[in-house]
Computed example of a mutant assay.
Amino acid sequence: MPYRHTQPGTTILAVCTAIGVVGAVIAWRITGQQATLIAMLIVLTGFYIVFHSLTVEVEGREVRWYFGPGLWTYRLGLGEIRSVSVVRNQWQNGFGIRKAPGLTLYNVSGLDAVELKLKSGEIRRIGTDDPNGLAAALNAAMRRLQA
Rank of each mutant, 00 (worst) to 15 (best):
T73G: 00
W91C: 00
L111E: 08
P8T: 09
Y66R: 15
E80Y: 15
A27S: 00
V114Q: 12
R124L: 15
D130F: 11
A39M: 06
L78P: 02
I12V: 11
R4A: 15
E115I: 06
Y74H: 15
T31Q: 14
V58K: 13
T128F: 12
I81M: 06
W72R: 07
D130N: 10
R29A: 12
A24T: 00
E62I: 05
A14T: 08
R88L: 14
N89P: 05
R82P: 03
V114I: 06
N107W: 04
A35K: 10
I81S: 07
P8G: 02
W91I: 10
A14R: 09
T104N: 10
G110D: 00
G60D: 12
S85T: 05
E59F: 14
S85G: 06
R64I: 03
I38Y: 08
A14F: 07
L134C: 03
T6F: 14
Q90N: 09
K99S: 14
Y66H: 12
P69C: 11
L44Y: 03
G70I: 02
M40K: 06
R88D: 01
V22E: 00
A135V: 07
R88M: 13
G110C: 00
T45K: 07
N89S: 00
Y3S: 02
A135C: 07
L71E: 01
V108Y: 07
R64M: 02
S53Q: 10
P101F: 15
A27Y: 04
P131F: 00
A18W: 12
E122K: 13
G20M: 13
A135E: 01
D130A: 09
E57T: 04
V84K: 04
I49A: 06
G96A: 08
F95M: 06
V87Y: 01
G121D: 04
D129N: 15
E115M: 15
K99Y: 15
N132D: 04
H5N: 13
A35Q: 09
P69F: 15
T55H: 11
T17Q: 10
I126W: 14
G20S: 10
Q33V: 07
T6C: 10
S85H: 00
P2T: 01
F67W: 13
V114T: 09
